[in-house]
Each structure stands twice: as C-alpha cells, then as structure tokens.
C-alpha cells in the first residue's frame, strides 16, 4: 500500500538540506503553507533559495523564515508590500539577494521546469531592465526574451483536501502557485486541511494529480494528535 500521508509537519520537512531551492506557494497570505514553513524554521536548514510570489507578509510564514536569517536568496515578483518590513530591512542591509521576476515569467518558468522544457521564449519584459543582458529572439515579428526553468529541490504548498496518493484540490484563490510549483519540484510537500479516503475526490475535479506530490501532511490529524497529547 502506498501512503504518502505524514501526520506532522516536522517529519515532512526533516530532510530539507542547507542550500536547498524551496518553492513556497501562496499569493500574499492566501495559500501560504504557514505550518510547513514554521516547521522548516524549527528544522533549521540555512542558506536557502526561496521562490515565492512575495517576500513575506507581517511576521509569520515566509516572513518568519526570512527573519530567522535562513534565506540567502529570493526570487519573487512583488517583494515590496505594506507589510513586508522583515524583508525590506534585510534587503536594505544587503543581507538577502533578490531576483525580481515578472509574475507571469515566474509562472511559466515553473511550468517549464515541471514540463521538462529546456527554456522558454517569453514576450514579457522585452525591452525593459529586467531583460537586460538576456538573449532575445524575434519570432513572427514579435520580440521574445529567453528565460530558463526554475526547478525546486522542494515545494511547500497548501491545498484544501488530499488523499494518500497525493491527489489535491484547493480552496478558492489559495490555489495560485500550488499546482505549478508541485510540478516543478523533485519533492513536493503539501499541507492539507483534510485527508480524505481514496475515491472521495471527484476524479474530474482533481487539480493536482498525485504523481506531482511526494508527501502530504494532514493538518487536522496533527492537531488531533497535539490535542491528544495535551
């Protein structure tokens, strides 16, 4: 029997090494896998490269990981926000490297990684400073910039429900980067609010097929366990 489910977040992130490239789902706080990121802080991995749309909000999740000085480099589309003070301070102090990637290029570079493509030509950012020094090509009269895939060693994502084979469905706009990050990482760890029996997810409505998910953490089970111990 194959059971990808794990009952606690600490076990799920136990072997993420120093220097890993970690894809972190979420758009702002929607879809941010806060519990997995908290577990990664406790686990202690350092010198991480983080790929995420934002550079943390407030003091929790990704912001807390950055504040704990575990992140060497971050790739994101929109680091500067009203509540990104943790990142802002370290960036201004020169303590964290930033690569700003247009949101759609972030998406298609992750998709390219997941689909096994060597590179893509994207029209986004052509003629701007974000394309400076990059190879370009004109195809059918339109200008494109060569961009390379973003492969993750690990993806940490948040879904709504999943089963022990790793099939996932999401909740509303918390879906955002989850499905494309799941495909782009060698080891995708999904936290779910509910683990359901095989067959309970409508196969027509599965958003991320289990082949893209290596570990699934049932937060409800973790909670029940914690309450049982308390």
């Amino acid at each position: 029997m194959i059971d990808k489910s794990i009952n606690n977040v600490a076990e799920a992130v136990r072997d993420i090494p120093d220097g890993a490239v970690v894809l972190v789902g979420g758009f702002g706080t929607a879809g941010m896998p806060v519990e997995l990121v908290d577990a990664l802080i406790d686990q202690g991995a350092r010198e991480l490269t983080i790929v995420s749309n934002n550079a943390g909000n407030g003091e929790q999740g990704l912001a807390a990981l950055i504040k704990a000085r575990r992140v060497r480099r971050i790739l994101c589309s929109f680091p500067r926000q009203a509540d990104s003070h943790v990142f802002d301070e370290l960036y201004r102090a020169g303590s964290i490297e930033l690569e700003v990637v247009p949101q759609g290029n972030l998406a298609c570079r992750l998709e390219a990684a997941g689909a096994g493509l060597g590179a893509i030509f994207t029209p986004t950012a052509y003629g701007t400073q974000l394309a400076e020094g990059k190879e370009t090509r004109t195809i059918d009269g339109k200008h494109y910039v060569l961009e390379y895939p973003i492969h993750g060693d690990v993806a940490l994502i948040k879904a709504h429900r999943g089963d022990r084979w790793g099939n996932l469905v999401y909740n509303k706009s918390a879906r955002n980067f989850g499905p494309i990050m799941a495909r782009a990482a060698r080891c995708t760890i999904a936290q779910v609010n509910e683990l359901v029996p095989l067959g309970a997810l409508d196969p027509e409505a599965v958003v991320t097929p289990g082949i893209f998910v290596q570990r699934i953490v049932n937060l409800a089970a973790g909670q029940a366990l914690a309450e049982g111990l308390a």
Binding site: D88, G104, T124, L130
Partner: peptide, 16 residues
C-alpha cells in the same frame, strides 16, 4: 536606486 523593485504582473499585462 534605494527603492525595492517590485513588478508583479504589470509587464505580463502590458504585453499580453
């Protein structure tokens, strides 16, 4: 030069 750059989806929308 001191500003933290942030682009979001603006460049994708502009060309797309």
């Amino acid at each position: 030069p001191d500003a933290i750059p942030a682009v979001g989806g603006a460049m994708d929308l502009a060309v797309g």
